[in-house]
Design a protein around this nucleic acid. Structure first.
Lengths: 214, 214
DNA sequence: GTCTATAGAACGATAGAC
DNA sequence: GTCTATCGTTCTATAGAC
């Protein structure tokens, strides 16, 4: 038997991701966690405090692992610019592995995160900036060094596209399997990492072309 | 003054996208639309009927325009495989233009759509499949013909990545501007189309490489 | 077709016993 | 730290006057 706080976090993660934050009541959570109605307010202060704890539990270790992989590359290569694919892999691999790890509530958590990323609510955005800001800046810096000839404006746009490709893949588990008629296996974490890194790297490396007219 | 139904649709689109479906009450909608509390139930039957109408109003014309552009390419080129960039542009351009058109509630609608795409609710997924299924299959068929050497499993994965890049860009209006320190202009629809098509086309065309080991 | 009024249910949060 | 009980609020939906 897990402790009360963990039981609440597990239930909340699952329900927030599958029903959405607003559609999930504390009563739903407490019913699944087998705890009392007052337990959430006792342990987390409020429903807002609960979502903050749900996010921190996964994102803090995730970004530690990402930066560890990035540091490891840098240590190996000294002051040279890192190879693009290795930077992307340090960014992507920990997230994909987490999203496919059933022990970590994987796909549940990533879908929740995907929801929150398009949430205009300023309070949510503040939480996400606090959790991802520094890691994001570290990776953008590494990408800039790796692609010195790419103008900054193009780099930012491409990072944005890459974020979308990654986020959508992390969130979506069943649609691709359905659309592809079962050809694609959403549980093949290493295959996803390889394909996603290759796709993004190709887009990142593409020479900048002049705007063409229709 | 617009009619009651349109006023409700406009208000609902804005509120569903900014607060989420569940967090938006009919009272919120009716307050903004300046109509009565019972008006939604009268015109749309229920809150579910309202979201269906909100989606149909934008998606049906959007997909008609996408298929029109695709048909136009095919008519011009006969039985040849269409150029990859033209297919992608037929898919992407109408959506980007819609998302940047303030008259069409653009960014509001796309954010709502982005939310719904990661909604596991089967009812929502059924609505989306009905609205997007046929158009999606037409474009996948065209992409297959355009990339005859790409194995089907790789094509589906890449379509998935492309969908994510596009969806994230359509939803997100402010984060990129913030992260880039104002370098990227989220209102430059034609620039976005050009960059997004180039990024996705590069990823689509990338030769398939063997899985490498870490 | 548009309103008022309200039914009936669920919500977040808290007080206070143990 | 965990419980019961409940307060005050808000919700969707509908009944029925006009």
């Amino acid at each position: 038997m897990v402790d009360t706080k963990t039981a609440i976090l597990d239930a909340a993660e699952h329900l927030f991701s599958s029903k959405g934050f607003d559609a999930t009541s504390l009563r739903d959570i407490n019913a699944i966690a087998q705890v009392n109605l007052a337990a959430v307010n006792y342990h987390f202060g409020s429903k807002d405090g609960l979502i903050q704890s749900v996010l921190e539990r996964r994102i803090v270790p995730l970004n530690i692992e990402r930066l560890r992989l990035l540091d490891q590359c840098e240590a190996r290569l000294g002051n040279d610019a890192l190879p693009l694919n290795e930077i992307l892999e340090a960014l992507i691999a920990p997230a994909v592995r987490l999203s496919r790890d059933p022990k970590a509530g994987g796909e549940d958590f990533m879908r929740l995160l995907g929801r929150l990323f398009i949430e205009p609510n300023p309070k949510v955005q503040t939480i996400l900036e606090a959790l991802f800001g520094e890691t994001g800046r570290r990776f953008i810096k590494a990408l800039k060094q790796s692609l010195p000839n790419l103008p900054e404006v193009e780099l930012f746009w491409r990072v944005n596209f890459a974020t979308g490709a990654m986020a959508h893949t992390l969130c979506d588990t069943s649609r691709l399997e359905f659309i592809s008629g079962g050809v694609c296996d959403p549980n093949d974490a290493e295959g996803i990492i390889h394909r996603l890194v290759a796709f993004i790297a190709a887009g990142m490396r593409e020479p900048v072309s002049a705007t063409h007219t229709l």
